[in-house]
Write a protein that binds this DNA or RNA. Structure first.
Length: 133
DNA sequence: CATCTGACGACCG
DNA sequence: GCGGTCGCCAGAT
């Protein structure tokens, strides 16, 4: 049963408090999901309905709502209802990013720092990308 | 078994 | 800030 594999993800998402959000990246790191954020995204894409999983509280690393059609408009509405502040089409992660276990200790979200590692130039291997025919 | 496909995120121009 | 590309990994074809 594939749902069992993602159960930890749904259990974690269910614990996100009202008015708070988690990024796909954060979910992946907390659960040590191999493959990182995309794996978290895959799990969310298969979120079972009727299980009380607040899927709208999982957003992109930059606070963007990545839910595709035909549900694209739902998260925004739901989050607004929960009092989530937004700058344009983004959520203020500084205010609403949830840190498991520190919900009532500190309301400040830890500033996420990007590694300053340099990477070798990237090869542009086109892997049958949807392009113009 | 070989490929393609994403509810991502990092980089690049 | 935006759009295109690549690495990642489990499912679908």
């Amino acid at each position: 049963n594939p749902f069992m594999s993602w159960k930890p993800v749904y259990e974690l998402v269910k614990q996100i408090p009202r008015g708070r959000v988690l990024t796909y990246r954060a979910v992946a790191r907390i659960l040590h999901l191999p493959g990182g954020a995309r794996t978290a995204g895959r799990a969310m894409a298969r979120t079972p309905s009727g299980q009380g999983v607040p899927w709208h509280r999982v957003v992109g690393a930059q606070g963007k709502l990545l839910v595709p059609e035909p549900y694209a408009s739902l998260p925004r509405k739901l989050l607004q209802t929960e009092g989530i502040a937004m700058r344009g089409s983004r959520i203020d992660l500084k205010q609403h990013l949830w840190t498991p276990g520190k919900g009532k200790v500190s309301s400040k979200a830890p500033a996420q720092r990007r590694a300053t590692l340099q990477r070798a130039p990237r090869k542009k291997k086109s892997r049958s990308r949807p392009g113009n025919s």
